[in-house]
Design a binder for these strands. Sequence first.
DNA 1: TATGAATGAGTATTCATTCAT
DNA 2: GATGAATGAATACTCATTCAT
Lengths: 192, 192, 192, 192
Amino acid sequence: MRLEGTMTQARPLRADAVRNRKKILDAAHLLITRHGPEVPMDAIAEAAGVAVGTLYRHYPTKTDLVGAVLSRHVERMTLAVEEAADRVRAGEHAMTELTALVSRVIEAAAQDHAVKAAAQGVGASYAPENDTRAAAALTELITAGQADGDLHSDVTVADFYLLLATAPLDQPREVRDRWLTLILPGFTAAAR
Amino acid sequence: MRLEGTMTQARPLRADAVRNRKKILDAAHLLITRHGPEVPMDAIAEAAGVAVGTLYRHYPTKTDLVGAVLSRHVERMTLAVEEAADRVRAGEHAMTELTALVSRVIEAAAQDHAVKAAAQGVGASYAPENDTRAAAALTELITAGQADGDLHSDVTVADFYLLLATAPLDQPREVRDRWLTLILPGFTAAAR
Amino acid sequence: MRLEGTMTQARPLRADAVRNRKKILDAAHLLITRHGPEVPMDAIAEAAGVAVGTLYRHYPTKTDLVGAVLSRHVERMTLAVEEAADRVRAGEHAMTELTALVSRVIEAAAQDHAVKAAAQGVGASYAPENDTRAAAALTELITAGQADGDLHSDVTVADFYLLLATAPLDQPREVRDRWLTLILPGFTAAAR
Amino acid sequence: MRLEGTMTQARPLRADAVRNRKKILDAAHLLITRHGPEVPMDAIAEAAGVAVGTLYRHYPTKTDLVGAVLSRHVERMTLAVEEAADRVRAGEHAMTELTALVSRVIEAAAQDHAVKAAAQGVGASYAPENDTRAAAALTELITAGQADGDLHSDVTVADFYLLLATAPLDQPREVRDRWLTLILPGFTAAAR
DNA sequence: TATGAATGAGTATTCATTCAT
DNA sequence: GATGAATGAATACTCATTCAT
């Protein structure tokens, strides 16, 4: 289990170092999303407008960099889940939110697909603390859905992770939609 | 310097060549399954106990070799589907056969997982005629299942391919089973 | 100094062996002329309709084969020189014949250029006995030309070889012609 | 995975990089001259005392390296021509300078012969701007020689290029001299 | 003798990572 | 802290030549 670079950095970074760090992460995100995790480190460095050395100072390993990129992605997902949880707490229908959430997350991931491949391909592990937050919010949604009698009672957070992990992200839109049509019944109370 | 050779390799291979070919395919299968399609050709050659040249004589390209490994896999699946279709024709319950088939194929693929990745990763194309055979048998099963009123009327061969393509092959057994629990309802007439 | 394969072959070849030998040489000639001496031995064997083993039985080394191809070329040149000498002996004007000969040989070589490259590139040495015959005929022509007072008195066989060796065979026709315009004066008695 | 980089390498090289670049070019020059353009890149790297990676950083392709070696050669020739033109402008006899120039360039090239073969063999293109400079200076010389009535009036820059291109560079000194004796008359006004 | 399968050293090139400037 | 030059192991593929069938 590896923590993200930022965590290990005790003292605050110099202003330009922060800037560089962001430029690097942006470039990595862009290139990895576009070309997959095989992009050479040199290419990322060039796109970021820094030298490779700088890149390595911030992320001592390609795996680290890919991991950082992935973390960002996870962070975005986490926010989406938390927002959905907020809305449910504010009175929205849980199952509706869950369905929309899944759909939205999958669509987002489909654009960013290479990022996920990155994680598995290079073996990068992403920041676990985000997962915890996401898991908490998701649990809330699930509980609410079950309380409504919509969601099947044995559904867990892991099931949703599985849902995301297996979504056909690299397929065209209509395939992804068909996919949701096929998979969502399994999550409802009525269908099983 | 590449000059065109004869396309057709009509004459039967020599006994020892056949032996080597099999050794190569076995080694490739093993290594690709275990380490993914990135395994060096040299490693495969060594594992097969032949020199690289021999390997290249049998499979002029890495893509060819990976494709051959994949074809094997597909062939096995095809047989499974055809057997199921035979049983249904012989009176067995279609939905039961379909469910068992999916389960069996997924289990088989799980062992062989990297092989699939190989196909996409290297762009190897697997023998399409197998697909045709498999598709025919599968169509038969689907039609039967729909006639029984078990299978949802809009289910197609493509849906089953999607099912296979997205199965969490690299997850442990219980995850795969859970997965089937979640996905199969979407295929039934009752659940939707 | 290596002798051609034929020379080392004490007993007469079997009929089919002779046939194979010719097929090989023809194929080698064609491919080497067309693609240069880098053509793989396998390609030559295939074009000849024999297996590589057969090819190697006749020409134990690529160098040998290339040398044999070259010999053929030299043989043709030799014939041309001898014919010119014959004509001069029959009363033709020596200088005219020499000029025409040079022109003709260069044109022939231009088509067959790769063959010459072959000789140098692979280090093949061509059958020297042909040279002897060619040299004799050429000497005759030279002597006649000098007797006529046309050819410069210090011109030797080596000069003509130099002429051929340096002709711009890979250049287009007009360049080769210009070349002759430039080089021939040096051979005449008048110009020096 | 190739991503596009910046074309312009504006900033000056670091001192040690310059040193390496020179070592590489020297080694390449030596080895290519000695063994022809087939010398392995590894061999050149070793001879230069650097790792292959370094070699490829400076010359991304073998063709580039060979081209660079050739450019050097051309550059040297260009200088020689320009110097001769300078001398003629300063009052020297044009034909004498031309003759000496040709002789000198050929002698220089003879040492370097393989380099030329390299260019053609690998398809390397040498810096064309050098040619332009050389052509200008050569034109000047030719014009002067024709004005003196020494050089044949139809002689062009191309003729001199042809002269160089066909010189028997790989032959011993006396052959090259003999060659000049034979070819130069063709360039004079008197001989044709 | 012919066949063609097997050998294996050799080739250009890439890329994560280190380290002198 | 940043730079970018250097490293060198790794990879797919070729081809002259040998040798079992």
